[in-house]
Amino acid sequence: MSNGRMNGNGKRSFKLMIVDDSNLMRRRIERSQQFEELQLVGTAADGVEALELFRRTDPDVVTMDITMPHMDGIECIARLVAMKPAIRILVVSALADKATAVEAMERGANGFLNKPFTDRQLNEAIAELMR
């Protein structure tokens, strides 16, 4: 990752944003991810909220649901990537069809994780994302 910041310990740190319309899922992701270098800067319940949050916090890593009200994940990914090409986005969705996955990847996502997921699956996907 190109634009990590140095934190107090001299380790690189990344700002994490979680986008999911389910409060439960947002907390689940926040709780389950085990990366010290990831610091949650905010969570958003839909695409519009996510863009707003992005402007304020400039996150480096994003987990993104697809099916959300107001603005769906696909659209949101495209906008985020346009504003910050180096951003890393992990799609976390129950949509298991390939076309959705390809579409998300094409818009600029960097990884794809199917719901439901285990903690291990989530952490592996994030590790892969930050590699």
Binding site: K98, A99, A101, V102, E103, M105, E106, N110, G111, F112, E128
Partner: peptide
């Protein structure tokens, strides 16, 4: 075509690409 294009990029590793093969 989107998928093929992604294959040429280096953003997604082989396993991920395999899993989303449409």
């Amino acid at each position: 075509m989107k998928y093929i294009k992604l294959l040429w990029g280096d953003r997604a590793h082989e396993n991920l690409m395999k899993s989303i093969n449409p």
